[in-house]
Design a protein around this nucleic acid. Sequence first.
RNA 1: GGUGACGUGGGUGAGUGGCUGAAACCACCGGUUUGCUAAACCGGCAUACUCUGAAAGGGGUAUCGCGGGUUCGAAUCCCGCCGUCACCGCCA
Length: 425
Amino acid sequence: MLELHFIRTNKERVLQGLKIRNFTGEELRVVDEVLQLDDTRKDTQTELDSILAERNQLSREIGGLFKAGKKEEAEAMRRRVSELKERASGLEEKLKATVEALNEALYTIPNIPHESVPAGNTDSDNEVYKPWPGELPQLESGALPHWELAQKYNIFDLELGTKITGSGFPLYRGKGARLQRALISFFLDEAVKAGYEEIMPPLLVNEDTARATGQLPDKEGQMYTVERDNLYLIPTAEVPLTNIYRDVILEEKDFPIKLTGYTPCFRREAGSYGAHVRGLNRVHQFDKVEIVQFQHPDRSYNTLYEMLAHVEGVLQKLELPFRILRLCGGDLGFTSALTFDFEVYSAAQERWLEVSSVSNFETYQSNRMKLRFRDGKSTRLAHTLNGSALALARIVAALLENNQTPEGIVIPKALQAYTGFSRLD
RNA sequence: GGUGACGUGGGUGAGUGGCUGAAACCACCGGUUUGCUAAACCGGCAUACUCUGAAAGGGGUAUCGCGGGUUCGAAUCCCGCCGUCACCGCCA
């Protein structure tokens, strides 16, 4: 969530940012509401504190009086303290209710977009930050979309996944399964080479964890839940990886902290069906290697571009045509200040598929998480960033389609050491 | 899942109702001494909120796993939850 201090001292910027996110005049009122609630909170806190201070003072005196054997005086004082206690408990309730209302309001305010974020409503307003410089691949007539290639080569099976679980849970087999494993290892190795520490985190997380990275309450419907144990299946490795540093105070010399992890990702993705979600285009379970960084606020944007370059490098090694988009205000994730999406061109479907999203959250997540670092005498919130490097399912889709030949599917050179075969047939 | 023990600051670890935000030691930071290093000595060393001040700073409140309760007063007593460890049960 946004820092109260920031809202207070940069109100105009906050309002401006929310407008970029297409907040209406009505919706903008939440900013004033937050500031008013915070005023109430402060006043209540101050009043309560002074009552408690008096209580503590009197209690100390009572102790002295008892020791001195002055029973009557002590009794009189006790009655005074009782009165104070009643007033205090009323204020405590008010304080609690105010803080709750304040947090609720704060949770409805998304991150303020970075100044470079273009205005816009939908994904069609996203800016092409880096177009694909060459020609887009053209397939010969008779080229198949990946779901048909899957049948032809028996590499994954959606119907079997449906039989076992439900739609959107693909089952990979044979060389298809091997290709998955190869991509995961390749992506992890690339990240480790770039200085990221490899983590294998839990796949189920608790409520605190889901709240800290912003899945709760903003995207509650996106996650699968294990109600009996009050746990959530992770929608991305970002959640457990970032939460490693929840409630931690770092030293400045700790920066940057770079983590990577492979996990399956589970997403309910309620909504649209049809051609755009066929095959592996959108599934409920997919594999992804994530990169996460924790950085000093002054350097986080350099880090963002470094992460962009990393993803670019990996895609180049896979020899896939891709472009980079800068998300517009309307398409920007709730917790992000600036996001770049990577899209890979899928030649058989003749459309771009999103395979990575790289974001700087600035202090939005770290404020929820209380992730700070020591800055002289005080503490400051760190910046958190993350990106996919990369998401498998759509990479596989593009790989299969773009590399199909009459002799089978050609495996990119960089991947052959991992697959153990150079052609999938 | 059952039974038992335990949960104190970065670490070890004192502390069973008041003067304990918390001893001592270690680690860490600053300084003195030393030709350098080491040692010794002195000082500092939690977080959040808040009031005050131009600032340096000063005051207050809360926090000893979490949440309730008892009491004038709780790290200390009571209840619930969570976690750790040990043993048993189950088990890849």
